[in-house]
Computed example of a mutant assay.
Amino acid sequence: MIEWMLNLMNQMGYLGIFLLMILENLFPPIPSELIMPSAGFAASPEQGQLNIFGVVLAGALGSVVGTLPLYYIGKVFGEERATAWADRYGKWLTVSGEDIRKADDWFDQHGTKAVLFGRMVPGIRSLLSLPAGVSGMPLPKFLLYSFLGSGIWAGLLAAAGYFLGENYDRVEQYVGPASKIILGALALWFVWWIIKRRRERAQGS
Rank of each mutant, 00 (worst) to 15 (best):
G111M: 09
Y71C: 00
Q173V: 13
L156Q: 01
Q11R: 09
A158T: 01
Y71Q: 04
N7E: 15
Y71D: 10
F107Y: 15
E80F: 02
E172G: 11
P131M: 12
L23H: 01
P37C: 04
V64W: 04
L143E: 08
A58V: 06
F53V: 14
F27I: 15
K102S: 08
A160S: 12
N51M: 14
P138V: 10
I73F: 10
R101F: 08
G62K: 02
N10I: 02
A58T: 05
V115S: 08
I194M: 11
A114Q: 08
Q47L: 12
Y71S: 01
I22Y: 00
N7A: 14
L20I: 01
I73R: 06
L156A: 11
G97Q: 11
Y168P: 08
W192V: 07
A159D: 06
M5T: 04
F53N: 14
Y14G: 03
P29Q: 12
G78C: 08
R101M: 11
Q173F: 15
T94P: 10
M36W: 01
R201S: 04
F163D: 00
L23W: 00
D108C: 07
D104I: 14
Q11D: 15
M36I: 01
S135F: 11
A39I: 03
F117Q: 02
I152Y: 03
L164D: 05
G165N: 06
V115H: 07
I194H: 07
G136R: 05
W192Y: 14
M36E: 02
N25M: 15
R201L: 05
P45V: 12
I52D: 14
